[in-house]
Protein backbone atom coordinates (compact mmCIF):
# COMPACT_ATOMS: atom_id res chain seq x y z
CA UNK A 1 0.00 0.00 0.00
CA UNK A 2 1.57 3.29 -1.12
CA UNK A 3 1.15 6.68 0.45
CA UNK A 4 -1.37 7.54 -2.23
CA UNK A 5 -3.34 4.39 -1.37
CA UNK A 6 -3.33 5.25 2.31
CA UNK A 7 -4.49 8.77 1.58
CA UNK A 8 -7.31 7.35 -0.51
CA UNK A 9 -8.39 4.91 2.21
CA UNK A 10 -8.39 7.69 4.80
CA UNK A 11 -10.41 9.94 2.52
CA UNK A 12 -12.96 7.22 1.78
CA UNK A 13 -13.45 6.34 5.41
CA UNK A 14 -13.72 9.99 6.43
CA UNK A 15 -16.38 10.41 3.77
CA UNK A 16 -18.27 7.44 5.14
CA UNK A 17 -18.62 9.42 8.34
CA UNK A 18 -18.94 12.90 6.92
CA UNK A 19 -20.30 12.49 3.39
CA UNK A 20 -20.85 16.20 2.85
CA UNK A 21 -17.19 17.07 3.46
CA UNK A 22 -14.91 17.62 0.47
CA UNK A 23 -11.66 16.22 1.79
CA UNK A 24 -9.68 18.21 -0.74
CA UNK A 25 -10.65 21.37 1.12
CA UNK A 26 -9.66 20.07 4.57
CA UNK A 27 -6.50 21.66 5.96
CA UNK A 28 -4.16 18.67 6.40
CA UNK A 29 -2.63 20.24 9.50
CA UNK A 30 -5.88 21.15 11.27
CA UNK A 31 -7.49 19.11 14.04
CA UNK A 32 -9.81 16.72 12.23
CA UNK A 33 -12.39 16.43 14.99
CA UNK A 34 -12.91 20.17 14.89
CA UNK A 35 -12.63 20.77 11.16
CA UNK A 36 -15.12 18.15 10.12
CA UNK A 37 -17.10 18.04 13.37
CA UNK A 38 -16.78 14.40 14.37
CA UNK A 39 -17.38 13.11 17.87
CA UNK A 40 -15.72 10.32 19.83
CA UNK A 41 -18.11 7.74 18.39
CA UNK A 42 -17.35 8.86 14.81
CA UNK A 43 -13.64 8.77 15.58
CA UNK A 44 -13.86 5.26 17.01
CA UNK A 45 -15.76 4.15 13.91
CA UNK A 46 -13.06 5.75 11.75
CA UNK A 47 -10.27 3.97 13.63
CA UNK A 48 -12.22 0.70 13.40
CA UNK A 49 -12.58 1.10 9.63
CA UNK A 50 -8.90 1.98 9.17
CA UNK A 51 -7.93 -1.05 11.26
CA UNK A 52 -10.03 -3.32 9.08
CA UNK A 53 -8.82 -1.90 5.80
CA UNK A 54 -5.10 -1.73 6.58
CA UNK A 55 -4.83 -4.63 9.03
CA UNK A 56 -2.81 -2.36 11.32
CA UNK A 57 -3.14 -2.20 15.07
CA UNK A 58 -4.08 1.32 16.07
CA UNK A 59 -3.85 1.43 19.87
CA UNK A 60 -5.76 4.06 21.77
CA UNK A 61 -2.53 5.51 23.10
CA UNK A 62 -1.64 6.56 19.53
CA UNK A 63 -4.87 8.53 18.96
CA UNK A 64 -3.11 11.91 19.40
CA UNK A 65 -0.95 11.06 16.38
CA UNK A 66 -4.10 10.70 14.30
CA UNK A 67 -5.43 14.13 15.15
CA UNK A 68 -4.82 15.68 11.72
CA UNK A 69 -5.24 14.41 8.17
CA UNK A 70 -1.51 14.57 7.45
CA UNK A 71 -0.70 13.05 10.86
CA UNK A 72 -3.06 10.18 10.19
CA UNK A 73 -1.55 9.41 6.77
CA UNK A 74 2.01 9.68 8.11
CA UNK A 75 1.18 7.42 11.06
CA UNK A 76 -0.37 4.70 8.92
CA UNK A 77 2.44 4.88 6.40
CA UNK A 78 5.12 4.50 9.08
CA UNK A 79 3.19 1.60 10.63
CA UNK A 80 2.88 -0.14 7.27
CA UNK A 81 6.58 0.28 6.57
CA UNK A 82 7.63 -1.16 9.92
CA UNK A 83 5.13 -3.99 9.47
CA UNK A 84 6.81 -4.86 6.15
CA UNK A 85 10.36 -4.79 7.47
CA UNK A 86 9.49 -6.66 10.66
Amino acid sequence: MSEADIRKVVQEELNNIAPEIDIATVDPAADLRETIDIDSMDFLNLVTALHHRTGLEIPEIDYPKLATLSGMVAYLEAKLKSAKTA
Binding site: L44, H51, E60, I61
Partner: peptide
Protein backbone atom coordinates in the same frame (compact mmCIF):
# COMPACT_ATOMS: atom_id res chain seq x y z
CA UNK B 1 -10.88 2.42 30.22
CA UNK B 2 -7.27 3.00 29.14
CA UNK B 3 -6.15 -0.29 30.70
CA UNK B 4 -9.08 -2.20 29.28
CA UNK B 5 -9.01 -0.71 25.78
CA UNK B 6 -5.22 -1.06 25.45
CA UNK B 7 -5.50 -4.79 24.76
CA UNK B 8 -8.54 -4.64 22.49
CA UNK B 9 -9.03 -4.02 18.76
CA UNK B 10 -11.11 -0.91 17.98
CA UNK B 11 -14.32 -2.95 17.64
CA UNK B 12 -14.13 -3.94 21.28
CA UNK B 13 -13.20 -0.59 22.79
CA UNK B 14 -15.50 1.27 25.13
CA UNK B 15 -16.13 4.99 25.27
CA UNK B 16 -16.65 6.87 28.51
CA UNK B 17 -20.16 7.63 27.25
Amino acid sequence: LAARNATLPPDGRLLIG
